[in-house]
Write a protein that binds this DNA or RNA. Sequence first.
DNA 1: GTGTTATCTGAACGATCGTTCATTTCAATC
DNA 2: GATTGAAATGAACGATCGTTCAGATAACAC
Lengths: 205, 205
Amino acid sequence: MNDRSDNTDPMARTSGSHSEITGPRLREAAQRLFARHGYASVTMRQIAAEVGVQVGALYNYIPDKQGLLADLMRAHLEELLAAWAAEPRGEGPLGALEAFTRFHIRFHLERPDAVFIAYMELRNLAPENFAGIEALRKRYETELEDILRAGQAAGVFDLPDTKLATLAVIAMLTGVTTWYRDAGRLSRERVAGLYWDMVRKAVAA
Amino acid sequence: MNDRSDNTDPMARTSGSHSEITGPRLREAAQRLFARHGYASVTMRQIAAEVGVQVGALYNYIPDKQGLLADLMRAHLEELLAAWAAEPRGEGPLGALEAFTRFHIRFHLERPDAVFIAYMELRNLAPENFAGIEALRKRYETELEDILRAGQAAGVFDLPDTKLATLAVIAMLTGVTTWYRDAGRLSRERVAGLYWDMVRKAVAA
DNA sequence: GTGTTATCTGAACGATCGTTCATTTCAATC
DNA sequence: GATTGAAATGAACGATCGTTCAGATAACAC
């Protein structure tokens, strides 16, 4: 009657099961659910249901719930830093700032769930996980701060407090994930352009 | 041996107990804990311990945990709208924008916990509570949007998309709560001034 | 086909959750 | 000082949590 994956009374390994499939699906399901409802509100059984598996099977892939969260956040931040490192910079501080702005908007709009988690779930990290992940976040901030300081030194920016300006710009840009929808009236390109307009003027000398 | 409030074996109403005291303390404790650890992670027993009472006593003051969250958020947003309504506006769109910016920074720095909750815990609201509270949040956004649109119409601002600009400015300003500490090197006045510098330039024609 | 390994089920564990309630004591009134 | 209502305790409820594990079955190597 059944051929694959929909046995009506499975008692053990199910047909078609594979770690190369279940592993990624677990991470995707967790990311989506954590972003939607928050880490603390999501149960392991919800994740398992989304994956299409019983809850015990999840522990073939993760040490525990906390480890799952930490892995998702670390992976996201490392991907963010690697992507920015590979991004072509423009000319001078102004070009670098434009590159950063457009990169930040684009990258974040492509991964709204991961961004949301990395930002909202810091307080749910165990101390031993928090330290390393917070350091990664800090490193990304420093990338922007370096650009702003260089521009300030070169006289193309007017920023009495580069640290504050860094945080202000990042907050402004990251906020895009809270409202942007692909079905909306603005394309991602256009949104990036509009944010760049505001950033450019805000820091201008 | 004991005089007040530290009976070693209390079995019922404790000495010094009063609803005018316990009620506010409950709300303060919940606000602090929700902001620090997140609504879903905080237990009623933690709140009770902070108040100095057993968990059952909390239900003399609240219908349930969800109602407590909704009340905190609604009260905060209503206070926000009332305070802005009572705030003196400056002259013209530019004056109004400066008034809004300085008000927003000041108000939010005075209540970091309430702000954090109103922003982070929207997804933990039951649908029946969400609608009304989201409407209040929206009304506050509209206050800024009206200012920006007026300035755009008057030609003092250059904003191709006022809706996007509204969200960008609010995100930038609200972000101040994530890093500002009173013990830091910048006064609240100075911070408000620095943010105003950036906002002013960002929207300028 | 046989044997080995990878993968999942089903059931259970103790802990903890939000909430309720009968009971007890304190505060207030007269 | 007796009476009444306000306020809190302590214990309990069923539900649900994260996690573990023995056993069962599919995938794969030979």
